[in-house]
Simulated scan of single mutants.
Amino acid sequence: MDDRVERGLALLVRLEHESLSLSDTIDRLEAVTTDPTAIRTILDEAETRGVIDREDATVRPRRHQYLRFGRDVISKDGEFSCRRCGASLSTGYFMDLDAGEIGPFGSTCIRKVLGRE
């Protein structure tokens, strides 16, 4: 299976909300890929595996395993471009998931991807 699908599934397992709109869920999955076919595959596979429930335009995670800064969200110094907004970064934040790293993101974008802003 495509590694984008596995990373997308790993991200959905870590959603921090009781429910999200489909639009907000897709916004978070765009941290992994902007390919609409891959996003659809991630959502379909997540429902099949019992990671989420979907009803109309609402997504409800079945589990809540929050990402913690310092343990699951790590920072690295270097020259990066934010995966979400494209800004130049000297410090990049990465989600360290079982399926692989997702990032880099700037300090504001990582909070948006995690749903904390």
Rank of each mutant, 00 (worst) to 15 (best):
R71W: 05
V113Q: 01
R83V: 02
C109S: 12
L20F: 02
K112R: 15
A99T: 09
F80T: 04
I26E: 08
S21P: 05
R54T: 08
R54N: 02
T25L: 02
E30T: 10
D2S: 10
G100K: 11
D77L: 06
A10D: 08
S21D: 10
L12W: 00
V5Q: 07
L20P: 01
D98S: 12
A99F: 03
L97D: 06
D56T: 06
D27V: 09
A31T: 04
A38E: 14
R49V: 05
E55F: 09
V113L: 05
S88N: 13
R83S: 04
R7H: 06
V5H: 04
I26P: 00
V59K: 00
T58N: 04
I110P: 00
H64K: 14
G92W: 04
L29Q: 01
S19W: 13
T37H: 15
L43H: 08
R60Y: 14
P61F: 03
E55N: 11
F94Q: 03
G8H: 01
R14W: 06
R60V: 11
R116S: 12
D35Q: 05
L114S: 07
S88F: 11
P104F: 06
T41I: 07
A87E: 13
R28T: 00
I102V: 07
A10N: 03
S19Y: 13
S107E: 15
T33E: 08
E6T: 05
R7D: 01
E45A: 11
P36A: 10
S19M: 12
E55L: 07
L9N: 00
T37E: 15
P36W: 14
K76M: 09
M1K: 05
L15E: 00
V51G: 01
D98F: 12
R14I: 06
R116C: 10
S23V: 11
L15Y: 00
P36K: 13
A99P: 10
D24F: 03
R40A: 09
R28D: 01
L29Y: 03
R83I: 04
I110Y: 01
R116V: 15
V59T: 02
R4M: 05
D35I: 03
F105M: 06
A38C: 07
D44R: 12
G115F: 02
S23F: 09
G92F: 02
S88T: 12
A38D: 14
T25P: 00
D72M: 03
V5N: 09
H64I: 13
R84L: 15
D24Y: 07
L20K: 01
E117R: 08
G103R: 06
F80W: 11
G78D: 08
E18W: 12
R63E: 13
V5F: 05
S90V: 13
M1Q: 07
I26C: 04
S88A: 13
R63H: 12
I74K: 03
D2W: 04
H64A: 14
E45C: 04
D96M: 06
L114W: 03
Y93F: 15
A46G: 09
D3A: 08
G50W: 03
T108F: 12
C85S: 06
T37N: 15
V51W: 06
G8F: 00
R116Q: 15
A10P: 00
T48A: 08
R68Y: 10
L114V: 07
V59C: 04
L89T: 02
A87K: 12
T108A: 14
